[in-house]
Design a protein around this nucleic acid. Structure first.
Length: 262
DNA sequence: AGTGTGTCCTGTGTGC
DNA sequence: TGCACACAGGACACAC
């Protein structure tokens, strides 16, 4: 898509999680996609008009790439149901990009030149140089919420989800029930390091395919085989053999070892 | 201001 | 086999 012009944009419904808006198609069609980047879990497409198109997969979204000779041959191991094809981008270079999302927790939003966006005040990228133990400690200072909830808060650190928060806390030996502002310096240093490690390992493994996540080449990730705690309720801790516990915090499952994570 | 809960939606797996 | 129910990768709008 990068460098290509949008020939045609098709919307098969008026909204995803948010409404597309009446002028969604007219503001994209005919524009060149100058640069495609990522911030947290958002894809950002910079258009030649200077406007930005943000795209989020939610929990079940996927992009299907077709019509381009380089990618025409791949097949997804789990085919998408066409009834959830919500947005189709036809590019002038022949590529056809389809956004499919059964649960419709995903969304697309156009942001005008100079307009603020919801990402403006989120925290640092966890794999970037601007994220470190001291930075994490400063972000958690005085927080009364539990460390599990704090790490899911995108203002503390960007792009961490439920799986990798559980895994990072296990690796750091920190209980998800600890008060965020009460972590010691050595613990925040350790935690920041383990966040970087677990994310790097997951990316290296092609991500985590719980049900049907796949990469844009159609391949499933395999980091789910490396989970230490996520989804392993009742199974033995890989370090001490105690059964992994599952509790619910702010409506989300937390998996942890009650012995190794103090 | 900061924090916890409920909600959007469909699909899948489990237990009866 | 059919049905009811719990649960799921995220982020926001609320009420406190």
């Amino acid at each position: 898509m990068e460098g290509a012009v949008f020939d045609r944009v098709t919307l098969n419904r008026p909204n995803l999680r948010f409404p597309f808006g009446d002028d969604f198609i007219s503001r994209i069609q005919g524009q060149r996609l100058v640069r495609l980047t990522r911030r947290a879990k958002f894809l950002q497409a910079e258009l030649s008009s200077g406007e930005r198109l943000f795209m989020h997969l939610g929990m079940s979204g996927r992009f299907i790439i077709e019509g381009n000779s380089k990618l025409a041959d791949f097949t997804h191991e789990h085919a998408a149901n066409p009834k959830h094809h919500h947005v189709v981008f036809e590019m002038e270079n022949g590529a056809v990009i389809t956004f499919n999302d059964p649960r419709r927790f995903g969304f697309m939003e156009l942001v005008g030149v100079g307009e603020p966006y919801r990402l403006d005040h989120i925290g640092p990228e966890p794999l970037g140089n601007s994220f470190s133990g001291p930075v994490l400690r400063e972000a958690l200072k005085g927080k009364k919420s539990k460390i599990k909830a704090a790490l899911l808060d995108q203002r503390v650190v960007a792009g961490l989800g439920n799986i990798y928060v559980c895994e990072a806390l296990y690796r750091a030996g920190i209980s998800p029930l600890r008060v965020a502002g009460g972590l010691k310096i050595a613990e925040t240093d350790d935690l920041a390091g383990h966040i970087k490690e677990v994310l790097s390992a997951a990316i290296e493994a092609g991500g985590s395919s719980l049900k049907d996540f796949s990469n844009t080449d159609g391949k499933l990730g395999y980091f789910q085989h490396s989970f230490d705690v996520y989804g392993r309720e009742g199974e033995p801790c890989k370090s001490c053999d105690a059964p992994i516990q599952r509790i619910v915090q702010s409506g989300r499952s937390s998996f942890f070892c009650g012995v190794c994570q103090g």
